[in-house]
Simulated assay, not measured.
Amino acid sequence: MRSRYTAFVRGNEDHLFRTWHAKTRPDDVGVDDATTWLGLEIVSTTDGGPDDATGTVHFRARFRDHLGEHVLEENSAFVRRAGRWMYLEALEN
């Protein structure tokens, strides 16, 4: 999760593409240059350890755009594929 947040901050679309599961990845993994990311808070995690194949991360990411400051809060599902964690989807709260 932290590496994906950093990729959004730095505009690293390649990393976002490589860490997004092909089943749910959009065709365009673009980054909005007009968005400034202000901070990431990991609220909680479930599973995701060295022996797990799945995990979840509940996070809050603060950002600023042309409309002001906002908070993106999500509970994200991740799966491990070939030893790498892949973002799968946002889960319903």
Rank of each mutant, 00 (worst) to 15 (best):
A90W: 10
W37S: 00
N93G: 15
T6P: 04
L16C: 03
G11N: 03
R10M: 11
R80Y: 06
P50V: 13
P26K: 01
V43T: 02
V71Y: 02
W20K: 01
E92V: 01
H58R: 11
A7N: 05
Y87Q: 00
N12M: 00
T36Y: 08
A53W: 08
V29A: 05
H66G: 12
K23P: 10
V43W: 07
P26D: 03
V31P: 03
V79E: 15
P26Q: 05
E69F: 08
F63N: 04
D51Y: 04
H15L: 10
V43I: 07
H66K: 15
W85R: 03
A90L: 09
F78E: 00
R84V: 12
W20S: 04
G30E: 10
F17E: 15
A82I: 08
T19G: 00
R64G: 07
L40V: 02
S3C: 13
V43P: 03
T35Y: 14
T56P: 01
F17T: 15
E92Q: 01
M1Q: 14
V43L: 05
L67N: 12
L38A: 04
D33A: 10
D28S: 12
D47E: 11
G68V: 05
T56Y: 03
V79W: 10
R4N: 04
F8V: 01
R4K: 08
G11S: 00
L40G: 02
R25H: 06
L40H: 02
V57L: 03
A7T: 06
R80A: 06
V79N: 11
L40S: 03
S3K: 11
R25D: 00
D27Q: 13
D65G: 06
M1V: 12
A22P: 14
R62K: 11
H66Q: 09
F8C: 06
R62Y: 10
N75P: 08
G48S: 05
D52G: 04
T54A: 12
N12F: 03
A22D: 11
R64E: 14
T46W: 12
G39C: 09
T24M: 04
R18E: 12
R60D: 08
G83N: 05
A82C: 12
R62V: 09
D28W: 07
F63P: 05
R62A: 11
